[in-house]
Design a binder for these strands. Structure first.
Lengths: 129, 129, 129, 129
DNA sequence: GTGGTCTAGACCACT
DNA sequence: GTGGTCTAGACCACT
């Protein structure tokens, strides 16, 4: 999943999908600081969706400090990603904590929970599917 | 959170809140198989919301095999919850796996992930808030 | 299924279940002409449901010529079941025709349909479950 | 019966009629995968019934994997109908089996049952009424 | 009283 | 315009 992709059938708004897509590419280091990203019109044309939708996504990405846009020049990955990375890290740990809490509440044992973690981290097939 | 409660301000649809609420009470064993649950009208009146909304929630709960309803008699906890329990268990483990996968993808270490699990399971304050 | 039984969880009205139950026992010959059947109150008490419901079922059975009731004496299997048997026969063949029609409409082949019939008629285990 | 139609006088709920109608059109191949179907409001207006009723039907169709809906874009035939087709096939064969079982139970002979099948499959008038 | 269906009408987010 | 949610109110069959 290393390029921007949209699932028209998803209940998730298209612009949110794009925000998460680009966020992911940036925060996982696939796109580097100051690297240029596709223009609003280019991406809209590539994905076959309305430029307004892309624009809304880019505006949100800019608000989050993940990209910046220069009228007439294009859009680029932000050169200071520390805030965005911190926020993502907090979000990920919180999601893990919530999942663990729910598991416990419904009677899944601690050992089983640890086993799930171990299983996920020992999986070498990353990126093959 | 051992009774049915609804947050009118939430973005989550009321009927979904009720579905999750009742699901939780049943799957955590607070409500027992064949126990009667409030009638559509009773619950609507208690919560101050429309009976149609409760009906929609109960219909979904019935579809999931968590309750059953008999016109003219009322609604009751299903006496075979094994399917629902299995589905919930699968869902919880899947959520945990997804959270772990995401954490790993973004560079959170395995030790840190295990620490989150241990932290959540050693928390004794359950049920106090 | 050789005695009267009711499924409280079914969407089918209880009185209809009783109508079909008694019909089946009579038309399959388990209950013979002029044989007595349980009184309204007796059956209501046995099944733990309201006598009004039983009464409604018996009234329908009487209307169909399957039983007759004598105030003060009880209810009995009708001694002329030919009309009811004819109606049941017509109904069964019609149901079979409808099922075959639907099967054909959705692309199930004739051979497969015949195989289902043969399979059902060669099944010797009748009555064991 | 190749378009969506509703019988207001039927005892069968309108939303169920619509579910079966659309299911039939899709599973019989009249509507193709990814083809768009009438919007909730359009169909409501065409049939002269309430949009909520159509919505309820579409929600059920979505649950069955027969269509999918995208807020703001419309509703479309699912592009993977294999699950729905399998379920329908199982349902049809089960209905045929049940009809055959009932017929046998009430004394209808095997030859007569096969004759009903043959009669239905040799009927050439399909689609004329 | 109880669940089930439906209408009329309103409001929301998204396209 | 499109799907999704909700309310208020009505009517039905069954208990």
């Amino acid at each position: 999943m290393d390029s921007i992709y949209v699932d028209l059938k998803s209940r998730k708004p298209i612009y949110e999908q794009i925000v998460e897509n680009v966020s992911s590419l940036v925060l996982r280091g696939v796109l580097k600081p100051n690297e240029s990203i596709p223009s609003v019109r280019q991406l809209a044309s590539d994905l076959g969706i309305n430029p307004n939708t892309i624009h809304k996504a880019y505006a949100e990405l800019e608000r989050r400090g993940i990209i910046f846009s220069s009228p007439g020049r294009g859009s680029f990955v932000s050169d200071d990603l520390s805030h965005a990375a911190d926020r993502k890290r907090t979000e990920l740990l919180s999601a893990l904590r919530t999942a663990a809490h729910e598991a416990r509440t419904y009677g899944i044992g601690e050992d089983e929970a640890h086993a799930v973690i171990s299983g996920e981290y020992s999986n070498d097939e990353e990126g093959k599917s």
